[in-house]
C-alpha cells in the first residue's frame, strides 16, 4: 500500500472556548477528488487553515508526501499545496494578470539585480511565466479580463481568479474553499467541469469544501463530513447521502 498524499492525524484546535476541530483524521490519496462538507461553523475552513499553515493545531500532526509539513505557510506552498479562500483574498488593486502571476512567484528564479535593472534575463523569465499564466487564464476563460483590476470583476470571476492563482503555483494538492458560492447555476456547471479537468488532465489532487450538495455528490470520489469540529462520517457519495447521522446534522440544519 502506498502512503497517502495528505495525512491529517488527530488534529485539534480550539479558539478560546470554541473547539473548532476535535481529533480530525483525513487521508487523501494521490489524484483523488475529495469533498469535505458540514454545516456552517463545522470547522472546514479551519481544517484548510491548519493544512496550509495559517493555524497551528493544538494537537495532532499533518504529513504531506509522507513527510511532516514545515511551519511557515510560504514553505508549505513550496511543498506543493495551494488553496483558494472562501472570503476572497485577492490583491484587489492589481490586475488579473498580476494576481495570477503572483502564483508563479515560487517558481521565479530571477536574481534581484536582473529585476532591478530590467536585464534580458528578467525579461526572458517574465515572458516564460507569463506564458504559463496565459495557459491558465485560457483554461478558466479569463483572458478577456487579464488587464482588468480584480476588484472590479463580478464575484464569479473573482472566484476563478483565486483558482487561477492557486493553479499557477503548479500544486500537487489544491484546496478549494467554497469555490461556487455566489455563482449562477450556469457558472457552477462550468466550474464543475473545470474542477474535473484539474484532476483528470492536470493530475492535481483536489480537496473541495462546498455547500452545494449537487456539486459535491456529482464529482467527489468520497466525502468527509464534519460537524462541530468532529468527523462524523466518511464514504462514497451514495453512502453519505443515506447516512442517518449526516442527514440529521447536515440536512437537518439546512432544512
Amino acid at each position: 500500500m502506498t502512503a497517502p498524499l495528505l495525512e491529517v492525524r488527530g488534529v485539534s484546535i480550539a479558539f478560546g472556548g470554541v473547539v473548532a476541530l476535535d481529533r480530525v483524521d483525513l487521508e487523501v490519496g494521490r489524484r483523488e477528488l475529495v469533498s469535505v462538507i458540514g454545516p456552517n461553523g463545522a470547522g472546514k475552513t479551519t481544517l484548510f487553515n491548519c493544512i496550509c499553515g495559517l493555524y497551528r493545531p493544538d494537537a495532532g500532526r499533518i504529513a504531506f508526501e509522507g513527510r511532516p509539513l514545515p511551519r511557515r505557510p510560504d514553505l508549505i506552498a513550496r511543498r506543493g499545496i495551494a488553496r483558494t479562500f472562501q472570503n476572497l483574498e485577492l490583491f484587489r488593486h492589481s490586475t488579473v494578470l498580476d494576481n495570477v502571476l503572483l502564483g508563479r512567484h515560487l517558481h521565479i528564479r530571477t536574481p534581484f539585480v536582473a529585476a532591478a535593472l530590467g536585464l534580458p534575463r528578467w525579461k526572458r523569465d517574465e515572458v516564460a511565466h507569463r506564458r504559463r499564466v496565459e495557459e491558465i487564464l485560457d483554461f478558466l476563460d479569463l483572458q478577456a479580463a487579464r488587464h482588468r483590476r480584480v476588484g472590479d470583476l463580478p464575484m464569479a470571476q473573482q472566484r476563478l481568479v483565486e483558482v487561477a492563482r492557486a493553479l499557477a503555483t503548479e500544486p500537487i494538492l489544491l484546496l478549494l474553499d467554497e469555490p461556487s458560492s455566489g455563482m449562477t447555476a450556469e457558472e457552477k456547471a462550468d466550474l464543475v467541469h473545470r474542477i474535473k479537468d484539474i484532476r483528470e488532465e492536470w493530475g492535481i489532487t483536489v480537496v473541495l469544501v462546498e455547500h452545494d450538495l449537487k456539486i459535491v455528490m456529482g464529482i467527489s470520489d468520497w466525502i468527509a463530513v464534519l460537524d462541530h469540529g468532529t468527523k462524523i462520517a466518511q464514504g462514497p457519495p451514495e453512502a453519505i447521502q443515506r447516512d442517518p447521522q449526516v442527514i440529521s446534522a447536515y440536512l437537518g440544519e439546512t432544512a
Binding site: 505557510p73 510560504d74 506552498a77 495551494a82 483574498e89 490583491f91 492589481s94 512567484h105
Partner: peptide
C-alpha cells in the same frame, strides 16, 4: 508584485509562496 500582495492580503501572499 510580492510587495503589493503583502499589502492587499498578507495571508494570500503567504500561502502563495511569498516569504
Amino acid at each position: 508584485r510580492a510587495l503589493a500582495a503583502i499589502r492587499d492580503s498578507d495571508i494570500a501572499a503567504e500561502v502563495t509562496g511569498v516569504s
